[in-house]
């Protein structure tokens, strides 16, 4: 009997899909982060890896717990919580106590990510929120960087760490920095685990640009804005390029420009919106650095910008595409 074409079927075209999965977005970030961590083990031994591992375990447990509460299948496979944990670790001091990163990760996953509904629904960048949280709560611990030459072991707690001021803090206190440019490039300055090795960071950045996982429109406009402000309002004595070098290479600036500002979920998609996003974020960071309480205000700037991203996106799209469509409709 001829059945006829009765389309009762629920499944609709397309019946083929691009091979990208949610995990492919995290995978690129993961690959870009690995060399940074390897590089830091050269300086600090295995402690950074241990911190990273503990944070990742915390992230997975938190996500599983939240999914249990929500009666939902855990989506750990997509890897976003692992990336969050790695980013938080990257912004910690190598001598940070183990619990500090775990607190940040727990806050990031439970309250910033899962409370809003999990991957894709979070309004704020979880890693930035986690770091901002511990910056507020434990300002004394987070910016304590060991002097170069200090032997970092896997001890539970460090007593009497000989702390040395990071470039960011010397910028804040107005002193001059005694580091040379190549020391910055090679990461031989006091700083967090993954944020000091500028050369490796640049390699990661290029990798992510090539993979189209990071957008030059955000990263470069952000860095350019920061550099311009550093020229206009220098905080150190000396030539303008000294100021630019110090501002860009200190703190989380380049690390954040690559990883925090390019999180797909919380940043705009339109190229014009991305441009504005980078510029505004740059202005905010420099404002926080100039008048803020802490030596690094990047995470706060990122969080503030996250709230604007959807609006920026939509308005830029309308600006560019609506006049055309209106004309089409008139015709």
């Amino acid at each position: 009997m001829i059945g006829g074409l009765i389309m009762t079927n629920e499944r609709r075209a397309p019946f083929v899909h691009h091979m990208a999965r949610p995990v492919s977005l995290s995978l690129d970030a993961f690959i870009a982060l690995v060399p940074l961590f390897l590089f830091s083990t050269v300086f600090f031994g295995s402690r950074p890896l241990l911190l990273a591992f503990l944070n990742m375990a915390t992230a997975v447990l938190c996500e599983a717990f939240a999914c249990l509460l929500l009666k939902r299948k855990p989506q750990i496979k997509d890897g976003t919580s692992l990336i969050t944990a790695l980013l938080i670790t990257g912004m910690l001091s190598p001598t940070a106590p183990f619990w500090l990163g775990m607190v940040a990760t727990t806050f990031a996953i439970l309250l910033v990510k899962m409370a809003f509904g999990g991957t894709g629904r979070n309004l704020f960048n979880p890693a930035a929120a986690g770091i901002a949280f511990i910056t507020q709560c434990f300002p004394g611990l987070i910016f304590q960087y060991p002097e170069s030459g200090f032997e970092v072991t896997n001890a539970l707690l460090f007593q009497n760490v000989s702390v040395s001021p990071s470039p960011a803090s010397s910028l804040q206190t107005g002193g001059t920095s005694s580091y040379l440019w190549y020391e910055f490039l090679l990461g031989q300055v006091p700083g967090s685990i993954a944020t000091t090795a500028i050369l490796v960071l640049c390699a990661s950045m290029i990798f992510l640009f090539v993979r189209k996982s990071a957008s030059p429109a955000i990263t470069l406009s952000f860095l350019a804005t920061c550099a311009l402000i550093a020229i206009a309002f220098p905080r150190v004595e000396g030539t303008w390029y000294n100021s630019v070098l110090l501002e860009l290479c200190s703190g989380y600036l380049i690390f954040g420009a690559i990883f925090l500002l390019n999180d797909p979920v919380t940043t705009p998609n339109h190229w014009l919106a991305r441009l504005f996003f980078g510029i505004f974020a740059g202005i905010l960071v420099m404002v926080f650095r100039h008048i803020g309480r802490f030596e690094e205000g990047l995470c706060f700037a990122v969080l503030l910008m996250n709230t604007l991203s959807t609006i920026l996106d939509r308005q830029c799209w309308k600006l560019l595409h609506n006049p055309k469509r209106r004309k089409e409709e008139m015709a």
Partner: peptide, 8 residues
């Protein structure tokens, strides 16, 4: 899964 807002 939920939208990742990736913009593709």
């Amino acid at each position: 899964s939920p939208c990742l807002n990736c913009g593709r």
